[in-house]
Amino acid sequence: MKLIFGRPAGLTDVKQRYCPGCGHGIVHRLVAELLVELNIRERAVGIAPVGCSVFADEYFNCDMIQPPHGRGPAVATGIKRARPDCILFSYQGDGDLAAIGTAETVHAAARNENITLIFINNAIYGMTGGQLAPTTLPGMRSTTSVQGRDIVKQGYPIKVCELLAGLDGPYYLVRCAVNTPKNIIRTKKALKTAFQNQINNKGFSLVEILSMCPTGWGMTPVQAKKWIGEVMSKYYPLGEFRNLAKEEK
């Protein structure tokens, strides 16, 4: 029998513990495929965040480190500066990257640090049980905003790509989604560009990915995909916010 679809060599054999319909598994696969396709698996050092994807250090089949909550970009900086030949990717959720780790994110971008940030935006704190995230939409319910996010009391969400686009530093900023096959293909292309930028010493790339959290959102997986298309991507528009490669041409 001919194998036509299998687990990419960029993933370990460990069974992933994500909920049904969760977007992490899709993004893990895309990253793992690229580690192989770009022949960087043996140069890669991945960073697992604190959050649902904390176990990413078991899932990616490359050197991995698990730092304190939000500090991925700082740890990536330390490794990259110490070992410039390594390819660094910091895989982070919205709480990790846009709340507790905002300073590390912004300053790594400002330094145009030659690293790749993979930012899973699912608008909720998944691991801790569905609390308000820095990216929870206005009016959206969470366990700490049961009436819906009240912008008077809880402020507005953070649009990370737009925020970082205000800096001169970053080389590549893009927002994608994994709610449809078409968007998944686009996401992979963006991730590929981000890794290639690092391989070519271009500097800081951030790929923000709108990702489903059916459990946290109280939806079925199908509803969750639909919600990204109809609601979430309206608030967080998809597309490139910075691509200096295009300006260089």
Binding site: V45, I65, P67, P68, R71, A74, V75, A76, T77, G78, I79, K80, R81, A82, R83, C86, A103, E104, V106, H107
Partner: peptide
Amino acid sequence: VFLQTESEIAAINMLFGAGAAGV
């Protein structure tokens, strides 16, 4: 490598990275 960081938090985590990278 000399890095003036955005905070002591960033500095110690850069050390975590560099130390883990074996330097």
